[in-house]
Design a binder for these strands. Structure first.
Length: 580
DNA sequence: ATAGGGTTAGCG
DNA sequence: CGCTAACCCTAT
């Protein structure tokens, strides 16, 4: 309310809330894994995965958690040889490389690492043999079974099995895959114990029944099955927290601060409001700028890449910039639009246009596998709008990636190359959580996926957005919307769609951190545009390690499906576009 | 492993 | 058809 506190720091509300959600769902995923509820694990995992593509307040634990999740989801699918996470590799081989990453930045005792490696490799062998994949087994044998002394015996055994094409043997029956999974989980949990997520703490403190206080509870009791289950649970927490936060203005308080303060106050029974209130006055001596030493210090989305334009007038399909206003709970959405000159007079780079509020309802489809045929929801316009005259998909790609990218070129004004004010391109504005319905809505600027092939992948995303008063490029020469409709609430949703998608605030095409591409899948998943998040990681990486150390950078951030060369190329592009 | 030039996908 | 970001190839 009062002063604009901490406006400088401003993280968007979404970043903060996403962080809470992130922590929460990671926690849930681990619990599910522990309970051997692997279906739930998969679900939580996919939630985390889609969260991560959104801007999130990066914190040092994030990478660790992501790595753990990556590791476990590969382990989880390790017995399915037809899945792949990274192209040529089997899930367990991917797990091995994730393990490398984990060890690189977490200091794992060498012996432990070896043990885990060995366990994975042996399990992989068993899996291969059991399923009769002898050639694959042989490759594994050659590539992974080093001449470690202690594995010599087993190596011999496996060799003979491979040679004799035996897919049944006492050894193969001995080991149970689920034991293996739990073993791997133990490893992860020894390595890193996930603290109780903030949202759960809040919930517990607010007296919500059924929230157990122990960090990792065992089994079913933890998910409140009666109504709504886990999802509802989180939404409640989210809403509470969000409401409070909104009131208090502020999202500039770091999560860790909140957590710390929560911990400091164990003795006092207080309501969430009070906690939050307290958190505004950082009375912690040590509290330095919250984001000082973070691994990913700013995951803010900047206007990115894919916006280069070689400038014709219709440039800048407007960039959207959300700042969390100190006073209003709603982030504002700024769109320095097209012909910048048209309104440039009033628009300085950091000028937030006051009158501009955009509301969006965010819908997140939780069920990862639901095939959401969204005729209703998705305007047909996205096909029609860009008449796809290009249907020459080079090959079959039955479910190919449709990574169509609305390359919406736009030149970034090379404003501050510093992080100081990285313009966020965010379009999320208001979370609307319904009481009963309890479905979160998650809007992702889904780009026009067009291509008749298939317009939804398992991660179906629907966007419903309405913006009020939203000046925007009329550049679209009259073709599709004609009336300016001042203040018109409804507006062409069609154009809006396009624009949203066009801005690339960040499309998450991110071919999944955790989920695998099914076996027959695309050998070449087409080209993946770089997400803003990825670009941020890259920037941060270059900042930390210097340009040229691409491999180091790659392994220090949860990139998926990006090679060091990709990073290098991307960096080159970013330089060219003066995005750095 | 990286740099740098060449190639391609995908859009206007 | 031209353009560009992403991707590929290869010498170092």
């Amino acid at each position: 309310m009062g002063e604009s506190v901490g406006e400088a720091r401003s993280l968007s509300d979404e970043q903060i809330i996403n962080r809470w959600s992130f922590d929460y769902y990671v926690f849930k995923a681990l619990s599910a894994f522990r309970d051997a509820d692997y279906t739930a694990f998969t679900h939580f995992t996919s939630i985390v995965e889609s969260l991560v593509v959104r801007p999130v307040d990066g914190h040092s634990d994030m990478i660790v958690k992501l790595r753990c999740m990556q590791f476990l989801s590969r382990i989880n699918n390790g017995d399915k040889l037809d899945l792949t996470f990274e192209e040529p590799k089997t899930p367990l081989e991917s797990a091995l490389s994730v393990l490398e990453d984990i060890c690189r930045d977490m200091s794992v005792p060498p012996r432990e690492k070896e043990r885990v490696q060995q366990a994975i490799i042996e399990t992989l062998m068993v899996v291969c043999l059991r399923s009769g994949e002898f050639t694959r087994a042989e490759e594994v044998l050659l590539t992974h079974f080093s001449d470690a002394a202690d594995s010599a015996g087993k190596r011999k055994l496996f060799e003979s099995l491979v040679r004799r094409r035996r897919s049944s043997h006492s050894v193969l029956q001995l080991s149970s895959y689920s034991d293996f999974k739990q073993d791997m989980l133990d490893f992860i949990e020894r390595l890193y114990r996930v603290p109780e997520p903030f949202l759960l703490q809040m919930l517990r403190r607010s007296g919500h029944p059924g929230v157990s206080s122990e960090p990792v509870t065992s089994s079913s009791q933890e998910r409140q099955k009666d109504h709504g289950g886990a999802v509802r649970l989180s939404l409640r927490g989210l809403r509470q927290v969000y409401g409070v936060l909104s009131e208090r203005y502020g999202v500039s308080v770091s999560f860790s601060q909140l957590q710390q303060e929560l911990e400091h106050q164990d003795e006092q029974e207080q309501s969430p409001e009070l906690h939050l209130a307290l958190s505004e006055t950082p009375r912690d001596p040590e509290s330095q700028p919250p984001y000082a030493g973070m691994t990913i210090s700013r995951l803010v989305q900047e206007d990115d890449s894919q916006l280069s334009d070689q400038g014709q007038d219709t440039r800048s399909p407007h960039r959207i910039l959300v700042t969390s206003g100190p006073e209003s709970d709603e982030p504002e959405l700024q769109t320095p639009v097209t012909r910048s000159h048209s309104r440039s007079s009033s628009t300085s780079p950091h000028d937030r246009s006051p009158a501009r509020h955009t509301q969006k309802h965010i819908r997140m489809v939780l069920s990862s596998d639901v095939e959401l045929e969204d005729h209703a929801a998705s305007p047909p316009s996205r096909c029609s709008s860009r008449q796809q005259q290009k249907k020459k998909k080079k090959s079959d790609h039955s479910e190919s990636a449709l990574v169509s990218s609305p390359a919406r070129p736009r030149r970034s004004d090379r404003d501050t190359q510093n992080q100081s004010q990285s313009s966020e391109s965010e379009c999320v504005v208001e979370l609307e959580v319904k009481d009963g319905g309890s479905c979160i809505q998650h809007s992702t600027p889904a780009r026009p996926s067009s291509t008749d092939t298939q317009r939804h992948r398992n991660r179906s995303v629907t966007v419903s957005s309405e913006s009020e008063e939203h000046s925007e490029s009329p550049a679209v020469k009259t073709s599709r919307r004609s009336s300016p409709s001042p203040g018109g609430a409804h507006k062409r949703r069609r154009a809006r769609w396009q624009d949203v998608s066009g801005t690339h605030e960040n499309w998450s095409d991110e071919e999944s951190l955790f989920s695998s591409t099914s076996g027959r899948s695309s050998k070449k998943s087409s080209r993946k545009m770089w997400t803003v998040q990825e670009s941020e990681w890259l920037k941060e990486g270059v900042r930390r390690f210097g340009a040229g150390h691409w491999e180091k950078i790659r392994s220090s951030f949860p990139f998926t499906e990006r090679t060091a060369v990709n990073l290098k190329d991307r960096w080159r592009t970013m330089l060219k576009l003066r995005l750095v």
